[in-house]
């Protein structure tokens, strides 16, 4: 692949890299896994880039390939060394800006989301990104009705996970 294409791709990716980071945050629990998944997503995006026609938005195209990487291609490495959890890393940086109780709620929420299946996490990601059900269904290859049904089930499942953790009262 030529240099120009590479420069074009890297420029676009640098601007939109938070898409990848956000997906990594839902699918991984520590920084090293986050970085591994991020790297694999970059490789997969680069491989698929020649097929990017430009008729779709780069961000839309990128999140689909990134989700596919997390669901179908990424192989979690077994690690012997204890890793630094994502939330600790981020929340430690931000502890002065944040209300402690809200931080704690968010930490529980992220932990709960990570207990969902790969497919459920993909739905949560697209829900958080305000994608409509037509797009969600199209991305996953299921019907729109099923995407809605699944999303409702996920909300119930999350509520149950949080209830078990005794945080229901926090979440209203």
């Amino acid at each position: 692949m030529n240099k120009e294409l590479e420069i074009e791709f890297v420029t676009l990716l640098e601007q939109h890299q938070n898409i990848l980071h956000k997906i990594c945050k839902l699918y991984t629990a520590d920084m090293d896994s986050h970085n591994d998944l991020f790297q694999e997503m970059v490789i997969q995006l680069w491989r698929a880039y020649p097929s990017f026609k430009g008729d779709a938005k780069f961000s839309t195209w990128a999140y689909r390939v990134a989700l596919n990487t997390a669901i179908s291609l990424f192989r979690t490495k077994k690690r012997k060394i204890e890793m630094v959890p994502w939330d600790n890393h981020i929340l430690n940086i931000r502890c002065e800006d944040y209300d402690t109780q809200q931080e704690e709620q968010l930490r529980f929420l992220y932990t709960a989301v990570r207990q969902l299946t790969d497919i459920e996490k993909a739905l949560v990601y697209m829900y958080l990104e305000d994608k409509d059900y037509v797009e969600i269904a199209e991305t996953l290859g299921i019907s729109e009705v099923n995407a809605r049904v699944k999303m409702n089930r996920i909300k119930t499942k999350l509520k149950n996970i949080l209830n078990k953790k005794g945080t229901a009262e926090w979440m209203g």
Binding site: Q17, K22, I43, Q44
Partner: peptide, 20 residues
């Protein structure tokens, strides 16, 4: 989120995939 600069992204492109 960590900000990955262009140079690091370019290096990543040429790394070997470890996909399933």
């Amino acid at each position: 989120f960590p900000k990955v600069d262009k140079e690091s992204l370019r290096t990543m492109l040429h790394k070997s995939s470890s996909s399933l």
